Amino acid sequence: MRGGSISKAARRLGLTQPAVSAAIANLESDMGFLLFKRNHYGTEMTLEAKSFSEGAERVITALNNLEELAEDLKHGRVGKLQIGCMPGLSTITPTIAARFMRDNPEVRLSLQTFPSRKVEEWVAAGHFDLGIVERPQSKNELEIFPYKFEMLCALPADSALAAKDEITIGDLDGKPMITLGDGHQTTMQLRSLANRHDCRLNVVAETQLFPSAMALVNEGVGYALIDPVTAMEYGKRSDSQVLLRPFRPLVEFEVAIILPKFHLVSRLCRHFQVALKEEFDQLVQSLAE
């Protein structure tokens, strides 16, 4: 049909004309009706052949689509991602996921924000394909790809320490501090530094999230150690007056990309994990500079 004649079909298929004629005859015999009528003008397609060819084209198209789908599945370009993210990185994760989806338009996304421990539980149980959490605890049930961010010191705009290039634990002796609670990893590091350097840690406010701590600093309530991702995102706000300085000795904020160890991980999830790792690597490098 596509060639317009048996001889042209034979050339396209790399067969002899008798071989194509024999194939057509065999097909007609199997189906019980003629596909082509021979007359003195050449070969004419029957009405049954026209109807059958439409079905054949749909089948061929479907097979081609299946081949494309298989190729996309092979390279992790299609499917649905179920991602759980800790609140602290929920501002930047959608941006990273959106870039991934633009490069892979057949991907569908479910992105949910929960506390890190809940994300760990759901990744370990296979309810999330991938999680982004603070320092993981369930290490036997997870594949863990860790990252560390150097904490910055956030200062109110009118701070007497504004002229300093970096802030030390001694500079914060007795200053009003905003922390993320006694059990948070950064607060424990800060308290340990204060004890070692004989400094008084004057906590005037506690909050669960770094953005909330930044907002309190912005209102002049006190000082806070802030992860650089939150600092970068909050700094984009038009009403932000917070000053940021390096803090010494070093306090690190540990996060991780996690995958389930005892549940199947799709190629799509692996593909996204690689892309997410590259984004995090670039982020860590840019923040360090």
Rank of each mutant, 00 (worst) to 15 (best):
R191Q: 00
T207I: 10
L225W: 04
C153L: 09
F149H: 02
A231D: 04
N195F: 11
A154P: 02
P146E: 07
Y147V: 05
G222A: 07
S238A: 15
Y147A: 04
A154N: 05
K175Y: 08
L193E: 03
R267D: 11
K236L: 15
D182M: 02
L244G: 12
P146Q: 13
D239P: 02
D239L: 00
S240T: 09
L264H: 15
T179W: 12
M151F: 12
P260V: 04
L244K: 08
E206V: 07
K139V: 15
V204G: 03
C199S: 11
D227F: 03
Q185E: 13
T187Q: 11
C199P: 10
L259R: 11
I169N: 06
E134V: 06
E252A: 14
C269G: 01
A215P: 02
Q185C: 00
L250Y: 13
T187P: 10
L161N: 07
Y234S: 14
P246C: 11
P228V: 07
G181F: 12
A162T: 03
M188D: 01
E233R: 14
M188S: 04
L161S: 06
D239F: 00
L244H: 15
P176C: 06
I258E: 11
V229S: 10
D239S: 10
Y147G: 12
A194W: 02
I257G: 03
L152I: 08
R267P: 09
H197A: 10
A213H: 09
G183M: 14
Q189R: 07
E150P: 12
H197I: 10
S138D: 15
L209D: 10
N218V: 04
F145M: 07
E143W: 03
C199E: 05
L225E: 07
Y147Q: 00
D173E: 04
R191A: 03
L216S: 01
A194R: 00
S192L: 12
L216R: 01
T230S: 06
E141A: 14
P246E: 01
F247W: 09
L172H: 03
R191C: 06
D227C: 08
G222W: 05
D227T: 08
E150D: 12
S212Q: 12
D198W: 10
R196K: 11
K261I: 08
L190C: 00
E150W: 02
Q185A: 01
Y234M: 15
N202S: 01
G220I: 01
K164Q: 14
A231K: 13
I257Q: 06
D165W: 06
A157T: 11
R200M: 10
E206K: 06
